[in-house]
Computed example of a mutant assay.
Amino acid sequence: MSAPDTPRRSGLRGFGHSGPSPWTDLDRPPLDEGALRHDLIVPGGLWTSLDVVAETGSTNSDLADRARAGAAQGAVLVAESQSAARGRMDRQWTAPARSGLFLSVLLRPEEVPVERYGWLPVLVGVAAAGTLGRIAEVEVGLKWPNDLQVAIDGAERKLGGILTELSGGAVVVGLGLNVSLREPELPVPTAASLALAGAATTDRGTLLRALLRDFADLYRTWTAAAGDPHASDLLRAYVDRCTTLGRRVKVHLPGGDELVGEAVAVDGDGRLVVRTADGARRAVGAGDVVHVRPEPR
């Protein structure tokens, strides 16, 4: 017998509760929580718990609550659908159920000084770009600071984004990645999905396993180096994939100001260094970057 067509709208729901059938769209099967736990929660590994819920408001908010309650490092929360997902600068992130990977991880990098926690979203971006290149065979770039980008028909489009927040002495890192969205389902025309980029696979379980394993390896290297972006080789890995460097950019700064110039470097604090028309260099720690097309000659 099929499940009711009308989903419940409140609470954090697992697949054992009533709600719409997860098999409504056969191109988007649900994640297998048991198999993911079996493969990823291993002795001595980073991941200590993994939950897949059918729907929630925000995986970041849910894990932040767990962090304040003292949850251990290595918790992973994946949602098949989010109703209140947030991106950078409080932008809304919307996507059909099971059309992407929507997850958050809880980290307690005790070996790392707090001032280096800002490298964690960079670490997730580098891991995700590497995983997608290797498994999905899609070349993914990183727009500063940590948007995942692909090129489709010569145009740069956003594939996913990363959001971090501190809670209960822990860092909660959220990742939203468009996997199987079709063109009419995109939230904005500048968005993209792995399917639209011609990915070799859009199997979310395969992608999630590889992503979490790759991130765990990079995280161990980074924490062993006390979060030093040079000693851990994280800065070089990021610069190699950063699509912003060498480009003319317009940076919308907090407070409403704008900075225009050439993005020439990422410094040891993860800031974007912009050279303005007068030759001055300014390091930007926060802002919304627009890649400016070269003027025709």
Rank of each mutant, 00 (worst) to 15 (best):
G227N: 04
D240K: 11
D153A: 15
R182P: 06
I152T: 14
G174S: 03
V172Q: 04
L148N: 14
N178S: 13
G125H: 06
V140G: 05
D203I: 00
T244C: 13
L142C: 09
L212P: 00
A170T: 09
V126E: 01
G130P: 01
L123C: 07
T206A: 11
A225C: 13
L235N: 04
G169H: 10
L196P: 02
Y117C: 07
L181S: 06
W144L: 11
A237V: 00
A192K: 03
A237P: 02
G141K: 05
N146E: 09
A128R: 00
P121T: 10
V150D: 10
L163A: 15
G169Q: 13
G125K: 07
D147Q: 11
R134L: 08
L120G: 01
A170E: 08
P184Q: 06
P187K: 04
L123A: 03
T221Q: 09
R134P: 07
L142A: 12
D147W: 14
P189N: 08
G130Y: 00
A225Y: 03
L163F: 13
A191M: 12
G125A: 13
E115A: 09
Y117R: 13
L245S: 06
G198M: 01
S167T: 08
A191K: 07
A129Y: 01
P229F: 14
P189Q: 06
I162W: 05
G176D: 04
V140Y: 01
A136R: 00
A129N: 01
I152E: 15
G246D: 05
L175H: 09
D228G: 07
V122A: 10
N146C: 10
A170L: 07
G141A: 10
G205T: 12
S232M: 02
G198C: 02
T206R: 13
L159E: 07
T202Y: 02
T206K: 12
A191G: 08
V239L: 10
R116H: 09
L177K: 14
A151E: 13
V138W: 05
T201Q: 08
V122N: 03
P121Q: 11
P121S: 13
P121W: 14
E165A: 10
E137H: 00
P229R: 13
R236M: 11
R157E: 12
V173L: 11
K143E: 06
V138Q: 06
A231N: 03
L132S: 00
K158Q: 10
A216P: 08
P229S: 13
L208P: 01
Y219K: 04
D217Y: 05
L212A: 01
L181M: 15
V188M: 15
E139A: 15
E139D: 15
L211T: 02
A192Y: 08
A224K: 02
G130C: 02
G160E: 03
R209K: 15
R241D: 11
A224N: 05
Y117I: 01
V239H: 06
L186S: 05
V171K: 01
G246R: 08
R209N: 11
